[in-house]
């Protein structure tokens, strides 16, 4: 055995992971007609029991579907989402729940997938506001916009409070290509129809006036 002096230069803790904080990481995907959201909730090992008390309300040592749904609902009540100042109503799409043991060890992440329908929005600049007030006593937050999957949506700015509990996403909604086509095609067709009608009227008018001219006194009919 080779004995070597091995000294940690700084105090080393046993924890290799977050201890006394409750990490809440939100990712927001803006689409033209809806907002999709994921929230990962990861309590550190030192606060896991505290969080579990809120989830495992019957103290059975496991999390039932009803308990998971109830906790998800409580998180959703603490989350505010609005577009251009109009509140949105996120609903739960699905949830992924770790084992109680994993949460207890500080490893378990609960994942909520939420979705909210957007009101009809016109092309142009818009903003989405997100606020997470769940467990601010122990929470640390991440909040980010995902790169939009549609070319119709372009994010122009993100602003947050210092703790990332609040996020404002500025974005531009471009006119839908199909809508653009119909927007241009319809007036175009109408224009063509009107031009065609005017042309016909003009021809009729010319023919009419010829006849009239023919009827001009002194002119011989051809």
């Amino acid at each position: 055995m080779l004995a070597l002096g091995l000294v940690a230069a700084a105090a080393v803790t046993a924890s290799a992971h977050r201890k006394d904080e409750y990490l809440q990481a939100s990712r927001i995907a803006i689409e033209s007609g809806r907002v999709q959201m994921e929230i990962d909730l990861t309590p550190g090992i030192a606060v896991a029991e505290d969080v579990l008390k809120q989830i495992d309300t019957d103290r059975s040592g496991s999390v039932s579907d009803a308990e998971a749904d109830a906790y998800a609902a409580s998180v959703m009540r603490a989350v505010a989402l609005e577009v251009d100042g109009r509140p949105l109503a996120p609903y739960l799409v699905d949830r992924v729940w770790p084992t109680v043991e994993a949460v207890r060890q500080g490893e378990g992440s609960m994942r909520l997938r939420l979705s909210a329908l957007m009101p009809p929005l016109g092309a142009g600049a818009h903003h989405l506001r997100y606020h997470n007030a769940h467990r601010p006593d122990i929470g640390v937050y991440l909040a980010n916009a995902l790169v939009p999957s549609s070319d119709r949506v372009a994010i122009t700015d993100q602003q947050r409070d210092v703790d990332q509990r609040a996020l404002r996403i500025d974005y531009v909604l471009r006119a839908d290509a199909a809508a653009l086509r119909s927007q241009w095609i319809a007036p175009g067709l109408i224009g063509l129809a009107m031009a065609s009608a005017l042309l016909r009227l003009s021809r009729i008018s010319r023919r009419g006036s010829g006849r009239l001219r023919g009827r001009t006194p002194g002119a011989a009919p051809t």
């Binding site: 990481a25 991440l142 210092v162 990332q164």
Partner: peptide, 13 residues
């Protein structure tokens, strides 16, 4: 950035 970043955003999972 004007805000704190407490952890990896695109870490495992």
């Amino acid at each position: 950035l004007s805000y704190r970043v407490a952890d990896l955003v695109l870490g495992p999972t």
